[in-house]
């Protein structure tokens, strides 16, 4: 049986892993390559590298790190951040990324998902949506959660999937950094509507939050988190073990 995936997310700026809460107050954590290698050995099923660099020097540093990681870590690697064109896909795929996650780039350029899916296949294109409740509806936010696009989230995500996105990362801004559990209501609204894998992001604070996620929403395929893994509050091996104990298919590294 296919297992539910656990995915640590590494926000990378100037060659280091950072993490903040609610997208503000970033805090340096560790070396991305070492951390990726560590997670892989602990049983992470996949890794997300998010490039939050603004400068071109930083971008070069990021692709160097990506290349080094992909030559040492042999689990799937998704890259996001600063993906605005098909050339950006090319740049990170050449450095060893397996999937590319688009967020603001797909909002600015609605044809990006379609073009990339045609060129690299849907399995390569991940739509990452930062979503927040505004006036009783789910809204897509751009620019790292700072800008309300006015787009209704569910229909926007469905449109991206129709255009060829092969996976959806749903990041709830409302629960991000709060550590009181995933946004089950928002996740249900999306996973009921799409027939590609849905990755839950934002809000995990403890092992039980993942158990609740997969028990409540069997159509959610993966759980993503950052700081709880980076700060050792949740050990991936313990998480996998608890999942298995609760009857959730999990890949345990013994």
């Amino acid at each position: 049986m296919i297992t539910k995936r656990i995915i640590p997310c590494l926000d990378v700026r100037n060659g280091r892993v950072v993490k903040g809460t609610n997208f503000e107050g970033l805090r340096d954590v560790s070396s991305p390559v070492d951390l990726a290698d560590y997670y892989s050995r602990c049983g992470a099923d996949e890794l997300v590298f998010y490039d939050i660099t603004a400068s071109s020097d930083g971008r070069k540093l990021f692709t160097d790190i990506l290349r080094e990681t992909a030559s040492r870590v042999f689990i799937p690697l998704t890259v996001g951040g600063g993906i605005n064109t098909v050339d950006d896909f090319d740049r990170v795929l050449k450095c060893g990324a397996d999937k590319v996650s688009v967020n603001s780039g797909a909002i600015r350029n609605p044809s990006l998902v379609k073009e990339a899916a045609l060129k690299y296949g849907s399995q390569c294109v991940v739509i990452s949506a930062d979503v927040k409740r505004v006036n009783g509806e789910f809204r897509v936010f751009a620019k790292g959660g700072r800008e309300d696009t006015g787009l209704e989230a569910i229909s926007w995500i469905c449109r991206c999937v129709d255009n060829g996105a092969g996976e959806v990362v749903l990041n709830s801004i409302d629960t991000d950094g709060v550590k009181k559990g995933f946004d089950l209501e928002m996740l249900k609204a999306v996973s009921d509507r799409v027939n590609v894998p849905v990755i839950a992001s934002g809000g995990a604070g403890c092992i039980q939050d993942f158990i609740d996620l997969f028990k409540t929403l069997p159509r959610v395929d993966a759980g993503l988190a950052a700081s709880i893994f980076h700060f050792g509050e949740v050990k991936i091996a313990d998480l996998k073990h608890e999942m298995a104990k609760n009857g959730i298919p999990a890949r345990e590294i013994l």
């Binding site: 297992t3 399995q123 092969g166 996976e167 395929d221 890949r251």
Partner: peptide, 10 residues
Amino acid sequence: LKIPQIGWNA
């Protein structure tokens, strides 16, 4: 079940 199968299987 979703298509493609994406993920770790035994």
